[in-house]
Design a protein around this nucleic acid. Structure first.
Length: 826
RNA sequence: GCCGAAGUGGCGGAACUGGCAGACGCACACGACUCAAAAUCGUGCGCCCUCCGGGCAUGUGGGUUCGACUCCCACCUUCGGCACCA
């Protein structure tokens, strides 16, 4: 017997699969398609365990589904634009494009060494002009549809990355990439109008039954829909001005005792102009605007308000209330103006106490003493009925929300309104290594989109690597200076590049026709392959990539370029890989790389461990001894196959069909049933693998319990072949080699997935548990599916049970067929 | 603060619709093989007791039920998301 040489086996089959182009996918309308996709990586140059995990999960599915006769598409590509390439370029004095290309080459080798069954004919690279040409084209599509616009506003700026960031890319005030504190800058930038799609992005979450609830919830929270009313307050002394305010509680309108405006609110300046408060107010506005939104909105930052000297008029009762400017009011949410109702809002209550503003109770809880604003200890924010509210007195607050708004609507003083927390997607990046925004500025014609025929707007590849940063595109006159496509006069190009999240918002469509040269993708191919049936990736993209990709898909749907309204039918958010209770990191010194595992044990062992250690959606704790155990198991399989092949060839064999054979067949079919169910219905690869382990144990038991010469060779061979087939998605190389040794036809990965036969699982005798008052007191063997009476009879005849029952009165007997008898006694 | 997920042996984890808690694997112990070790094979392995047998055990405390890891209520802990969103 030769020992299990993983390296030799893996190299042999990887070469063969490549030569035979085994995993190429083609449109075939006679077959049901299945699109398996793992989030494509940024080509950092190093594959880590997180990658290995996601590819292992995807590959099990792809291989399994092919064996179930699906027409599987399983592509891979590169999210190749991004900042690290620029940093590496400076560090190593190498062009970002070159650095990226090298990394891709290396990572592709690493991926192939894992034995993942990708169709490399579909490979895409978002940094190649063939690809970003269409990213630019899609930007122009957005522009034409009024979904891309340029606007000057306060934006998030990361000094370390020297660029702006979208809201989604700021985590707790820090840059998502480098964790530097984000500042606010007032800049003119390009945005995509994702807010136009807020309602659909929210509502369509309901259709996504194959998505984890937690991801849907995170998106829901991010979109942050709130229903309420927009109400217009007049400003005293400025009869032509009004302050529009958004509130979710119009039923508390009678309780308004002040108004607060955001410092950026356009009315602030007008109202204080020429008054004694002008300087104080404007100083405060200037000071506040210097602070980042993160600082301003942090819970620790004290709320500061400053009286403007003006009063607003409550539209429902004509009451005059003071107008303040406050640091905590955001111009970007709602209308940038808040009505203060201290009696019924926690924040307003605290604010009113601080500045000694009046508190007026207008919502009365049922079964409680009548609220008095002056004596309230805290705000009452729940439902109740309206008081101190004129003709609305007695109305339930829920009803009041509707009635008050309707009343205001009749008077043309307000209306129902929905607002969202989500903001438009800021996509400009002041960086070199990205897709240039295809826009030209002309002194005569203004902002002019680059004509489609002039795409791509190519990145200059000769870059300056002398400083501490790759200069942005503004630095290259040959790039900047151009002619206006409309008037032909001198003009200049937009020098910002697009957020890399744009590239990854449509790559799954490009995979369906990667070489299409007249459109981003061929609609026929897209209609055949889309949507992605199973998407797999990290939870960190719950509101970044996954929200952007949904948005893009909806825009393409509206443009009638695809039939799909949602890109990803099912989503699996895989857990992180930890070691010794911490995330793997260089500084902690607990890093294990796929390379060293492949080198030491082979890819099959690594894949098996990573799938066996934990269900995919849970975090995984890396354990070197566990890897060892999985390697041991594969060696055990190898020995089983090689020994059996020898024994089958040598021995005479028999046609014996006794108890041993029946047990073996039962184990085999039970395993087929469980492995199929666990892969397909539950994604519980860990329990699928344990079922295969049990099957292997059962075959060993058979070989031990039967003399070599008396093996039923037909049954043994059948069991071995099917075991190898079940193992194929998990340990593809070992399975392929074993299949060949067993004399199987073609590739194991082209075999039909075994089907279990229910009659093989049938047994004559079953063990039934006898309980007395719910406690196990004995076990009996009875014929399968025997009648209840017989079951009870046998249970009572059991020696020990009989003993325990003497002198007791039987109250009740519960039976579960083939499982248990519970005798309830007093 | 709000929203959500999860708590099971020494460890990773099983347990389908309420029906034998701890599958499978790791670690550990003992035995076989060996001059020895590795590899391999076999046996044992939740805790406690008076070890025949019994008691206690799925974060804690209650409840429903003949029967609860599973359902309900309250609480504790850990992790994740949002965090002045009007």
């Amino acid at each position: 017997m030769n020992s299990y040489n993983a390296t030799a086996i893996e190299e042999k089959w990887q070469k063969l699969w490549e030569e035979q182009d085994s995993y190429r996918s083609r449109v075939d309308s006679s077959k049901t398609k299945y699109y398996v996709l793992e989030m494509f990586p940024y080509p950092s140059g190093k594959l880590h365990m997180g990658h290995m995990r996601v590819y292992s999960i995807g590959d099990v599915l792809a291989r399994y589904l092919r064996m179930r006769d699906y027409n599987v598409i399983h592509p891979m590509g590169w999210d190749a634009f991004g900042l690290p390439a620029e940093n590496a370029a400076i560090e190593n004095n190498v062009n970002p494009a070159e650095w990226t290309a090298r990394n891709i080459e290396h990572m592709k080798k690493q991926q192939n060494r894992l034995g993942v069954s990708y169709d490399w004919h579909r490979e895409v690279n978002t940094s190649s002009p063939d690809y970003y040409r269409w990213s630019q084209w899609l930007f122009l599509l957005m522009y034409k549809r009024g979904l891309a616009y340029k606007k000057k506003s306060d934006v998030n700026w990361c000094e370390t990355c020297a660029t702006v960031l979208a809201n989604e890319q700021v985590e707790k005030g820090l840059c998502w990439r480098c964790s530097n504190e984000v500042e606010t800058r007032d800049l003119e930038q390009w945005f995509l109008r994702i807010t136009d799609y807020a309602e659909r992005l929210l509502n369509d979450l309901e259709e996504l039954n194959g998505w984890p609830e937690r991801v849907k919830l995170m998106q829901k929270n991010w979109i942050g829909r709130s229903e309420g009313a927009e109400i217009a307050f007049r400003v005293k002394d400025f009869p032509e001005k009004e302050i529009r305010t958004f509130t979710t509680r119009p039923d508390t309108l009678y309780g308004v005792t002040y108004m607060v405006l955001a410092p950026e609110h356009p009315l602030v300046k007008t109202m204080v102009e020429g008054t004694e408060r002008e300087k104080a107010v404007l100083d405060f506005v200037a000071k506040t605007r210097q602070e980042s939104e993160i600082d301003r909105t942090s819970e620790e930052t004290p709320k500061i308000g400053l009286f403007t000297g003006r009063n607003a008029i409550n539209p429902i009762n004509g009451e005059e209330v003071p107008i303040l400017v406050g640091n905590y009011v955001l111009m970007a949410y709602g209308t940038g103006a808040v009505m203060g109702v201290p009696a019924h809002d926690h924040r307003d209550f605290a604010f009113a106490k601080k500045y000694d503003l009046p508190i007026k109770a207008v919502i009365q809880p049922h079964d409680q003493e009548i609220l008095q604003g002056e004596t309230m200890q805290e705000a009452y924010v729940d439902e109740g009925y309206m008081i101190n509210s004129g003709t609305f007195n007695g109305t339930e607050s829920k009803e009041g929300i509707k009635k008050v708004t309707e009343y205001l609507q009749q008077q043309d003083l307000g209306q129902f309104r929905v607002t969202y927390r989500i903001r438009d997607w800021l996509i400009s990046r002041q960086r070199y290594w990205g897709g240039p925004i295809p826009i030209i500025y002309c002194d005569h014609c203004g902002t002019v989109p680059v004509p489609e025929s002039d795409l791509p707007v190519e990145l200059p590849l000769e870059v300056e690597l002398s400083g501490n940063r790759v200069p942005s595109l503004a630095h290259y006159p040959d790039f900047v200076n151009t002619k206006c496509p409309e008037c032909g006069g001198d003009a200049s190009r937009e020098t910002d590049t697009m957020d890399t999240f744009i590239c990854s918002s449509w790559y799954f469509l490009r995979f369906t026709s990667p070489n299409c040269d007249h459109a981003p993708f061929d609609p026929d191919d897209a209609d055949y392959w889309m949507p992605v049936d199973q998407y797999i990736g990290g939870i960190e993209h719950a509101v970044l990539h996954l929200l952007y990709a949904r948005f893009f898909t909806k825009v393409l749907y509206d443009a009638e370029m695809t039939e799909e309204n949602e890109p990803f039918k099912r989503l699996l958010a895989q857990g992180m890989v930890y070691k010794d209770g911490a995330k793997m990191s260089k500084s902690k010194g607990n890093v294990v790389t796929p390379d060293e595992i492949v080198e030491r044990y082979g890819a099959d062992t690594g894949r098996l461990f990573i799938l066996f250690a934990s269900p995919p959606e849970k975090d995984l704790d890396w354990n070197d001894q566990g890897v060892e155990g999985c390697h041991r198991f594969l060696r055990r399989v190898w020995r089983l196959v090689t020994d059996s092949v020898e024994e089958i060839a040598a021995g005479s064999g028999s046609n014996e069909q006794g108890e041993e054979e029946a047990n073996l067949l039962r184990s085999l079919h039970a395993a087929i049933k469980k492995v199929s169910f666990d892969i397909e219905e539950r994604f519980n690869f860990n329990t699928a693998i344990s079922a295969i382990m049990e099957l292997v144990n059962a075959i060993y038991t058979y070989r031990q319990s039967v003399d070599k010469d008396n093996y039923n060779r037909t049954i043994l061979r059948d069991a071995l072949e099917k075991t190898v087939t079940l193992l194929a998605p998990f340990a593809p190389h070992l399975a392929e080699e074993s299949w060949e040794l067993l004399g199987g036809d073609g590739s194991v990965h082209r075999q039909c997935w075994p089907i279990y036969e229910p009659k093989m699982l049938e047994v004559d005798q079953v063990e039934v548990v006898i309980q007395i008052n719910g406690k196990v007191r004995g076990r009996i063997n009875v014929p399968a599916d025997c009648a209840e009476e017989q079951l009870i009879e046998e249970a009572r005849n059991n020696d020990r049970v009989g003993e325990l029952l003497t002198g007791k009165e039987i109250n009740k007997v519960i039976t579960v067929p083939n499982k248990l008898v519970n005798i309830v006694v007093r």
